[in-house]
Structure formats: C-alpha cells, structure tokens
Nucleic acid binder design. Structure first.
Lengths: 330, 330
DNA sequence: TTGTATGCGTTATCAT
DNA sequence: ATGATAACGCATACAA
C-alpha cells in the first residue's frame, strides 16, 4: 500500500506538504503542488480512509434503514438515495430492519462506533426517546416518516393530502360508501395517522359519516387485499369504492374481484397509493396517488449531508406534494 | 468517546491486557478478565473500527454491485445478501452500476482504499482483465454472472438448464414454433449465452430447427415485451409460443396480447423467467422458471466470507438448480 | 511557505 | 500472565 510517506519521499518534500496538497490548503507554491501531484499520480496514491477517519475528519458513509428492500416503494427510494449519494461522494450502507426493534438498534449502534456518519431512517420501530438518544452520536433524519415531540428532522410526503384527494376523487365519482384500508392501526402516530385525517376531512366536507365497519387496519400485501374484498362481499351494506393505501393491496382487491366476477369500477371502484409500475399492469389500470419518491430520496440525502457538515444545522422539515393519477379503476 | 485507555485506567490494568480480553486471547487470568469486562460494561466501551482497520485487522464490510436495485430480481437478491451478512456480522455497502463502466470502477476502487473488504458483483460491465486486476486488492466474487478464462469464483444458477426445461415444456405442450427472447446479444459470454445453449439443446433434441426471425435480443422491460408481441403479430409465419427470458418481458407480451385480443395460452403461450410476485398477478397466471434467489445470496455471502478469512481460499464455483413452475400461460 | 513532532485508538512485539 | 512501546496512515499545532 502506498502511503503519504511514499509520496513525500518521491517528491522530495515532507508529509505535511503532501497532506496540505491533498486537502487543498492555501499557501502552497504552485511548484511544490505540482511536484506532489506528479508523485501521487506516478505512485497511484489514494489516501487511506481508515486513517482519516481515525484522525477525525472523514465523513463519507451514510446508513439507510428500510423495513424491507423487496417492497418496491423502498427499492425505488433506495435507488434515489444511492444515486444522490454517489453524486455527493457518499457511500451507502444499507440495512433492513424487518420491522424488528433490536435489528434497528443494532444498526443505529454503527453510529456510536462511527462506522456510519449519519442515518436516514425510512421506518421507525423503537420509541421516540430511544431513537432520540442516538442523535448524540451523529445526525439522524427521517424520510417518509416522523415522530412527534422530537426535533429529529423529517423529509416526507404530504400523506394527509394524498388520502384527501383520493377520497375526494371517489366522492366526485358519486361514491358515498367508501371503504378505507390503512397500513397502520388507525390510532397511532406517524404517516398513517396523517392519512386518516385526510380521509376524515374529505368525508366531513361531503357530509358523509364514517362507517367503522368499512375501515381495515394493518393491511399491506396482495393477500391482505384479496381478504379485504372477500370480507366486503359478505357485508349486507356493502361499500362501492375502496381506498387501499397501497398499490399492492389494491392489486389484491382487483385480483380477487376478477376471480369473483365483480366488475371494476362499476361493481367496485379501487384506488391505490404509490403509483408503482404494477399500477399500469392491472386490469383495468389502477387509479392511484403518486408519491414523488425520487425527490424524497434526493432531499433526504441533501438534508443529511447538511447535518453532517455542520452538526448543528437542522434542515427544514419538508412535506412534498402528491398527485392523483386517474386511470380506469375508478 | 471512551477508548481502550479509559478501560485500562478504570480496571487498573494495561492497554495490552484490555486488548487481549477484547480479542479473546489465551493466557489471561479469570480474575483480570472479569475486571476488564466490568470496566467495559460500566463505561459502555466499544472498540473503534477505524483504528482496528488502520491497524490492519478488521474485515467487516462487503460491497455489493447491482445493475439497478429497482429490478425485483436484484432487490430480492440484495434482501438475501443483507440478511445473511447481518447474521455473519458484516455490513453491506450497496452500489448500483446502472450498467455504467465507470461507475462500476469507481466502486471497485473502494477495495483499493480498503473501504470495503470484499465485493459481490451481480453484474459485470468492464472487461475481464480489468476486473481481474482488482483481485489483488481484495476478494471478488461473481453472483449470478461469471467470466470465462478467469479464476474469479462464481455462484450462479444453472441458466442453461433453465432455458432447457422451459423450452422443453413448450415442446411437450405441442409447440414447434417457439420465439426466444434474451437480455443479451446472443453472441456474447455470460449467463445469456448459457441460456442460448439450453434453448438450442432442447430444440435439437426435438429435431426442431432454429428460426432466426424468432430470436429477439436485448429484451428487458415490459415495454420490450409489448413490442415483441407486436412484431410477432405482423409475421407471416407466426410462432405459437414465446420464451421470454424474464417475467417483465412476459408481462409485456401478455398485456399487449390482452389489448390485441390474442388469447393466452391458446393464441400464444408465454413462459417467463424468475418467478417474481408479478407472475401470479397476471391473467392468466404465468408459467415461469424459478430461480433460487435466496440461496444465491446466502451462498455468495458465505463464499465471500471464506475468501475474506483466508485470502487464498477460493470457494468452489457453484451452479444452483432451477425449477419449472407450471401455471396457466402455457 | 514548508518541515517537525505529536496523537487519533488499536494491536503486535518484545520484555518481564 | 502482564506491561511498555512501537507502528498503522494521516492531519494538525507549532516552529522555522
């Protein structure tokens, strides 16, 4: 391995001078600078990041926690984060929490040991106090999530608005009996709560009262969606539209509807959330709420980079706008 | 930050002794060992990985190069790699080459600077000699790819067998006019070539001659699949079945067939490759070749771990078996 | 503008 | 079985 000493010898200068060239210090003569450059090129020198990190001044690795990378929403998010990180000369350490508290903590601990210099959390398993206690070891930024009563900054999508425009769209299509699926438990904090508020707001504005029988909590997968439609078909008073909260659940609903011979949108209207590629593959094509995933990833990396530069600077909390994509399922 | 010196002071022993305890050296009295343990616990001590790395003995980070993480095949593969790495106390640095030579090289360079201790390459952009030259800086393992005339080890799926059983299945269904899509260029090396061989073997065994008009190269996306079906429909002598080489391309073919009113499998039979979740969402459900993705990831991490332990030990090249999943599209 | 000396936290070598 | 010390590669305070 070629070190700074080798470069020093080769150029006939001292280690300090070489170091100054590497770090773009002022007050170096052009002459020596070129000498050093030449020696570095000839030797194929690269600074040793471990040494720099030990010395205390390297910040190059950001950690990303996702619940599961196979969820397309998160693989698109990671895609954007990785691209942006690359442009900013950061490395990305990836980590799946699998919705597991301890696994999440074990990753956060990399902050303690300085294996990562900052963390983007796209999901939250542990309690606010615990997460917050880790901010003493390095910057943490929430992406697509947030925690109340915490000064941990967050970059996210306006979920409330997303649910609002989705439900409103269904109402404008003449629906008043609207089922609602959420990934959360309807009571807790975070992004699911925001959606619930948008849902209720749209209902209120139209003077429609909420029917608790039509609320399905903790729905995530295609299988969940199938099950939702099955349950609905057994009801006496049956909703005519479903807000699914995710394209996967919507897909499940539609697949089951197909199997049961229920026409879409006339038998039942379906609206998704995300606008994944799959939305265009369903029959009929899925109306859905599009989230600006790429932008989400960019803003997250930029925000974290800011926090890593000057540890005190918190970026603004950002809420990105969503968009209704009208297709054939409503 | 609490260091080994702090622990030494607190326990009334020397740094050396503390270090020995940390590294499970023999020849330490139970008594002192417990003293050190106690001090470490009380202080909340963690060894500094940067220092260990600098000193030369930390190997904890593996790099993974994927072409694009949003491709479900690779997000499933990364999922498996991450899980296995976690179990083995490795961190995973993720990197997308975007099929770009220079980006790939920029990541391989992390091996030079010891930011990663080994690399799993799930795609190959640069020439064999270039890739090979990087093996002097650290272990490299191919996963789902390989290079001829190289001693870089490889964990992969038996692609030849995959194409073979797929084509054979179509032949058994009575088809003799079988179109063939490949992600590669039909001539080059690597996994696509293996598939081509399986394709030709199945044809040969059935005494069917290959029709060059029915070979579609460089096909990857849903859009590509749509285009393939359109082209086929314009042909005078029209194939009755398509081997697509990927579930995405198959999906494109089927979506277009639906739009054009071509029945599946009677108008045209379609077979995919991968067995992604999407295969079960299509109408009719897609017959496809299932790849053991999880196993692929596990074996890759285990193989690389072996190489990282003793730099000389090359794991065996492994070819994992594939499986035909028969559904309704054939 | 450049060089010398020191320390970051750890482990290996050499004593004891 | 334990301790003192040097060294890993780099960047900085201080000197010159």
């Amino acid at each position: 391995m070629v070190t700074i000493s080798d470069v020093a010898k080769r150029s006939g200068l001292s280690k300090s001078t070489v170091s100054r060239v590497i770090n773009n210090h002022p007050y170096i003569s052009k002459e020596k600078r070129e000498l050093v450059q030449k020696a570095m090129d000839e030797l194929g020198y690269y600074p040793n990041p471990a040494a720099r990190r030990l010395r205390g001044h390297l910040k190059s690795t950001i950690g990303v926690i996702v619940p599961r990378i196979i969820n397309p929403f998160f693989s698109y998010l990671v895609n954007s984060i990785e691209q942006t990180a690359y442009q900013n000369n950061f490395q990305v350490l990836i980590f799946q929490s699998n919705e597991n508290k301890e696994k999440e903590l074990s990753f956060l601990n990399l902050l303690k040991t300085r294996q990562i210099d900052g963390v983007i959390m796209t999901s939250i398993e542990n309690d606010a106090e615990i997460i917050h206690s880790y901010t003493q070891y390095g910057p943490i930024l929430f992406c697509n999530e947030y925690l109340n009563n915490t000064d941990v900054p967050s970059i996210r999508v306006d979920q409330s608005q997303g649910a609002y425009i989705g439900i409103k769209h269904l109402i404008e299509k003449g629906h008043t009996k609207i089922a609602y699926c959420t990934g959360g438990l309807f009571a807790e904090d975070g992004k699911d709560k925001d959606r619930n508020q948008g849902y209720q707001k749209a209902l209120n504005e139209a003077g429609i009262s909420l029917n608790p029988n039509w609320i399905f909590i903790d729905q995530h997968s295609i299988e969940d969606g199938k099950s939702v439609l099955k349950q609905i078909l057994t009801m006496d008073n049956c909703p005519t539209a479903i807000f699914t909260g995710s394209d996967e659940v919507a897909a499940g609903v539609m697949i089951e509807a197909n199997d049961q011979g229920v026409p879409i949108p006339n038998g039942i209207a379906v609206i998704g959330f995300d606008d994944q590629p799959l939305a265009e593959m369903l029959h009929p094509k899925l109306t859905t709420i599009k989230q600006p995933i790429s932008l989400l990833g960019e803003k997250a990396v930029e925000g974290l980079a800011l926090m890593m530069q000057k540890n005190n600077t918190m970026p603004e909390n950002i809420k990105l706008p969503v968009e209704l994509i009208t297709r054939k399922s409503t």
